[in-house]
Computed example of a mutant assay.
Amino acid sequence: MTSWLHIHQGSAPLIVSIPHAGTTIPPEIAEHLVSHDLATHDADWFIPQLFGFAAEIGASVVRTDISRTAIDVNRDPSGQSLYPGQATTGLCPTETFDDVPLYLEGHAPRQAEIFRRRVSYFAPYHDALEGEIDRLRLIHPKVVLFDAHSIRSNVARLFEGELPALNLGTNSGASAGVEPTSIAERHMAASGFSHVTNGRFKGGWITRHYGNPEGGVHALQLEIAQRAYMDEPAGLDIPTWKPDRAAALQAVLKGLLTDLIDWTKAQ
Rank of each mutant, 00 (worst) to 15 (best):
H187V: 04
E232T: 09
N171V: 14
L166M: 02
P124N: 03
L5H: 05
Y103H: 10
S182V: 01
V217F: 00
P13W: 07
L260G: 01
F53C: 06
A156H: 08
P109E: 06
T258Y: 06
I29F: 00
L256Q: 02
W241A: 07
I7V: 15
M1C: 08
H36L: 13
S182W: 06
F53L: 08
I15S: 07
I238V: 15
E28L: 09
A165L: 06
L168I: 14
Y103A: 06
G22W: 05
L129A: 01
W263Q: 05
I25H: 04
G216Y: 03
E185H: 08
T89D: 09
R135Y: 02
E214L: 14
A123H: 13
A39W: 00
R227M: 04
I29M: 08
S194V: 08
Q80I: 11
A70P: 02
A190T: 10
D65W: 06
Y210K: 09
I71V: 14
Q221H: 08
H32A: 13
A54G: 10
S35R: 02
S182M: 12
R135P: 02
E113K: 05
I133T: 01
T240V: 14
S35L: 01
E162L: 14
V73I: 14
I29V: 15
H36M: 10
T23Q: 01
G235N: 07
Q86K: 15
G52L: 02
I66K: 13
D42K: 01
D98Y: 14
L260N: 01
L129W: 02
G169E: 04
V61W: 08
S150W: 07
D37Y: 05
V100L: 15
D76C: 12
K254Q: 15
H107F: 13
A248K: 10
G203I: 08
V144G: 02
R135N: 02
D99S: 15
L168V: 11
P109A: 10
G79P: 12
L222Q: 11
A55V: 12
Q80F: 03
M1N: 12
L91A: 09
H32L: 03
R63D: 09
A128I: 01
L158A: 13
L50R: 07
G215N: 05
F97D: 06
A112G: 09
L50K: 07
V143E: 01
L257H: 09
L145I: 07
A176R: 08
L158F: 14
V155F: 03
D262H: 13
I114C: 08
A148P: 06
P164M: 05
A54K: 04
N198G: 03
G161H: 04
S3F: 10
I139L: 15
E223K: 09
A30G: 05
T181C: 12
E56T: 12
G215T: 05
R227C: 10
A190H: 14
T89S: 11
L91C: 09
S175M: 03
H209E: 11
E232H: 09
T197Y: 00
H218W: 02
F122C: 00
Q221D: 10
A247R: 15
F122S: 01
A190D: 15
L5M: 10
F115I: 15
R117Y: 07
T94C: 13
H218G: 01
T240I: 13
H209C: 13
E223W: 10
H209G: 00
H218S: 10
